[in-house]
Structure formats: C-alpha cells, structure tokens
Simulated scan of single mutants.
Amino acid sequence: MAVYTEVSEDEAGALLQALGLGELTSLRGIEGGIENTNYFATSTQGEWVLTLFERLTHAQLPFYLHLMKHLAQHGVPVPEPQAKAAGVRIKAGEDEILHTVCGKPAAVVNRLRGKSELAPGPTHCAAVGDMLARAHLAARGYERRQPNLRGLAWWNETVPVILPHLDESQAALIRAELAYQNHIAASSAYAALPRGAVHADLFRDNVMFEGTAEQPVLSGFFDFYFAGVDTWLFDLAVTLNDWAIDLPTGTTDAARTQALLNAYQAVRPLTDAERRLLPAMLRAGALRFWVSRLWDFHLPREASMLKAHDPTHFERVLRQRVAAPLLA
C-alpha cells in the first residue's frame, strides 16, 4: 500500500461521484505494502479505499475484484468493490466495478471497521482459521479462473534474477528449496490437493478486528490482489507462517498454530493428502515470500511512501520449517 501514483482530489472526487458515493471530503495516501497505490477517501456517504493498480492490468483485475464481490455476497467479510452508477459510461477495458484513474486500473471498496492485530493470541488465530475455511468453501462457486501469479512458475523465473544478491549459504538454501518444491508439485499427492480461489497473502496486517483483546471479533479480510487459483493448503500454510510463528526467530508458536488449525478444520477438515503435505506447503509459503521480498529489496521500484520488508525474516521461517516440520 505505497503511493506510486499521485491522485488529486479532483480526480478522486470525480470517481466517487461516478460511483454514486457522494462528494469527496478528504483524501489521504496509505503507507505500507509494496504493490499498489492506496488512498483513504472520505465522502459525504462514507469511508472508502481507492486503489490504483501498478502492476496488474485491466485484463487481469476482474478475477480479483469479482472474487471480492462474490465473497461479500456469500457472507464473508471482505471489502466490496463499488459499481458505477446507472447511466455512467463503461470505458474500454473497464467493467462495472473496474475503473480507470490517472491512466491506471482502479477500484473503490468500502473501508472495513476495526484495526489489524499485530500481536495476535490464540483467539485471534482461531477467528482467522474459521473465516479462512469459510472463504475457501464460499469460493467453490466462483467461476472465474486465474493462476496464482506468485506461484511456482514465478519462483522459477525469479530465483535466477536474485541469486547474484545472495551469499553462498542463502544461494544453496534457495536452490535446494526450489528443487524440492518442483519435485513436490510433480507428485500425485500434490495433484490430489483440493484447490480453488485463494487469498494467498493473509498476513496479520490484512485482517481487521473489532472488540477487545480478550474477545476479538473478526471484521474483515482485505488486500486480495495476490489471489489466484491454487491449493487451499498453500493458502492455509501462508496464513500459518505469519499468524502462528514467533516473528523474531521464525519458530512455530504451538498454541496459536493449534488454535488456527483446529478452527479451520472445524469448518473444513483437511484431507489425508493435505495432512501429509502440510510441512511441504509451509516451506512453499516461506519460499514464496522470501523470494518476493528479496526481489523487492534488491530490485526496488520508486515510490513516494515505500517501506520494503526485510527479506531475512522469511529466510529464518524457511530454515525453521525445514529443520522442524509441523505435522497436522
């Protein structure tokens, strides 16, 4: 959620009016994140988030936006893309919920209530596990298809680009893990994993809570712009790798892990193939974010409000997942 493209109040206001969302009263850039330009936009009718997509194209975006719309309409608390008002012309490349601002694809969604919990306990993790399983089941009826653009094919393309920036130990680890993940992906057990549309980036800062620390209420998932069709197990592994580890060391937190897994399985029990491959997918999730953070750190783009994440964090997580596999 950096700001790469400066949006004027006139431009933002014109879009809100085209969506029938009232008059703009304030516009503020959002810090954090690395992929898109985001603003908080307040209007006479409510609180909104305006996103300009810096890498994704008009052709790619309907998958993400209509997934959010689908989940919202099936009871999953996610930001709902706002549609153009009746009579507003839909330009080439757009649809009713995909717009254009400053020449970039754009969307406006309702702003979720609450705040992110960056130091979650087991109760927070249980809420996340429950809602993640519900989101997976709700997405079964979603018919659009787009691969996970940060999946194995992207790892295979990107690792050679970042290898020159690594020391000998890091290079050996990333080569070995990439070979292992290619082996797993070619297996019959992997082919048997249930799959569908997944979030693929459900970190602590992409979930909102209301209530108290003792009795939190999950008010929403957001930032679906890494979503794609992948295995549900990979999505669960990515989530566990953030919500259920000790951040300084990357080690597993047993209580949070069990809370998240138990809540998930109370809604959607894991299959035998998923239980067998959970350790491998936890490694895959760590590799995916180590690779992307190395790429963003060593090959950064310019942005007016950009904070690159530390790539060594997911190196630690990967080493821990290799050394101490988690069994479901």
Rank of each mutant, 00 (worst) to 15 (best):
T123M: 05
L61D: 09
A106S: 11
G87A: 13
V88C: 02
W154F: 07
Q73S: 14
A72W: 01
H136R: 09
G75T: 12
K84T: 14
G75M: 06
W154L: 03
L67S: 13
V109A: 06
V101I: 14
R134Y: 01
A106Q: 09
F63Y: 15
L65T: 11
I90R: 10
N148M: 12
P147V: 06
Y64Q: 09
T123V: 15
A85G: 08
R134S: 02
H66F: 04
R150A: 01
G129N: 10
I97D: 02
C125L: 10
A127K: 13
A133F: 08
A59W: 07
V78M: 07
Q60K: 05
T123H: 05
V128R: 08
A92D: 06
L112W: 02
V78D: 04
C102P: 00
G151T: 13
N148A: 14
I90C: 02
A107W: 01
G75S: 08
A59I: 14
I90F: 03
M131A: 06
R134A: 03
P77Y: 13
R113F: 01
E96I: 05
P122T: 11
R140S: 06
A83I: 13
A119F: 06
C102Q: 13
H74Q: 11
I90T: 15
R134L: 07
A138V: 12
W154D: 10
A126S: 09
V78Y: 04
R140L: 06
A135R: 02
V108R: 03
R150K: 10
W154A: 08
G87R: 13
R144C: 01
G103V: 15
V88P: 00
V101N: 01
K104N: 04
L118I: 13
N148V: 09
V128Y: 03
G93H: 10
G75Q: 07
C102M: 06
R113I: 08
A126V: 10
R111F: 04
L61W: 06
C125W: 05
A59Y: 05
E96R: 15
L137H: 01
R145Y: 04
H124N: 07
L118P: 01
A92C: 00
S116M: 11
G75P: 00
K91W: 07
E96S: 12
L149K: 10
T123L: 08
G151K: 03
A139K: 05
G87E: 09
Q60V: 02
P120M: 09
L149F: 12
A72Y: 03
F63L: 11
L98Y: 12
V108L: 09
V109D: 00
Y64I: 13
D95H: 10
Q82F: 01
L132P: 00
H66L: 14
L67C: 11
L65C: 07
N156E: 12
K91L: 14
L137A: 08
Y64R: 00
Q146L: 15
I90L: 07
G121W: 09
W154P: 00
V101C: 01
N110T: 13
V76L: 11
Q82D: 01
P147A: 04
A83R: 14
V88S: 02
L67N: 12
L61A: 12
